[in-house]
């Protein structure tokens, strides 16, 4: 099943930031969103992930198929790496966390408290969470922030494995992800015409 977005407009605080966005993401494919800071990439990802309602337009094939990873990793400092992962596995109704630990090179850290990890290790743990969700569409916001070159390589390998297994990935980034086969989607041309916020419309 494809993730498809048709004529989507997304809003921040009621003000549309992007409009007329259309794309489709087939299984096995990856799409990288690009655009300057504040152009609305995060808002677009949050909307696709279902965290906020679209301003207008349609999103199909999202909902319960999405695994979302935002700027913060949602880790609990007082739980160990294993406990953090196992919690999300249980929430998403999957069991096996060993593949996630292995692919993100977390096996040696498994009994460390997440609060004691370095920024890059935390990020890796945050990304490993995607693997235990068992969901086909990964929606990632700046996934490689604070990762070193080796870790970016791990991440790219994990995404490739996910694509090969029939998953897909939608990512926003400024940095090269090391996934050259991903298509690039520039959001700049879709900048919304300056317009009143939804809640203000009635008052103009």
């Amino acid at each position: 099943m494809m993730l498809s977005v048709r004529d989507l407009a997304v809003s921040r605080g009621g003000v549309p930031v992007l409009e007329g966005v259309s794309f489709a993401l087939a299984p096995g494919r990856a799409l990288v969103l690009r655009g300057p800071n504040g152009s609305g990439k995060t808002t677009l990802l949050r909307t696709v992930a279902g965290l906020q309602p679209p301003f207008s337009g349609e999103i199909a094939g999202a909902g319960e198929r999405i695994a979302y990873a935002g700027h913060s990793d949602g880790l609990k400092a007082m739980l160990t790496v294993t406990e953090n992962l196992r919690f999300w596995a249980q929430v998403f109704g999957t069991r096996d966390i060993s593949a996630a630990l292995r692919d993100f090179d977390l096996a040696q850290l498994d009994s460390r408290l997440a609060g004691t990890l370095s920024a890059g290790q935390k990020r890796r743990l945050g990304l490993a969470r995607l693997m235990v969700t068992g969901r086909p569409v990964w929606v990632l916001d700046e996934p490689t922030v604070s990762l070193d070159a080796a870790s970016v390589g791990l991440f790219a390998a994990a995404v490739r494995a996910h694509l090969a297994a029939g998953g897909s990935a939608l990512m926003a980034t400024h940095i090269d992800l090391g996934i050259p086969e991903a298509e690039v989607f520039d959001v700049t041309p879709f900048k919304a015409v300056p317009r009143a916020a939804k809640q203000d419309e009635a008052f103009l």
């Binding site: 003000v15 300056p194 317009r195 009143a196 916020a197 203000d200 419309e201 008052f203 103009l204």
Partner: peptide, 17 residues
């Protein structure tokens, strides 16, 4: 309240333009 909202809406539009 309506006028205050209208004033804020107009200011917001001003800032965007």
């Amino acid at each position: 309240e309506i006028r205050a909202r209208r004033a804020r809406a107009l200011l917001a539009r001003e800032r965007q333009a």
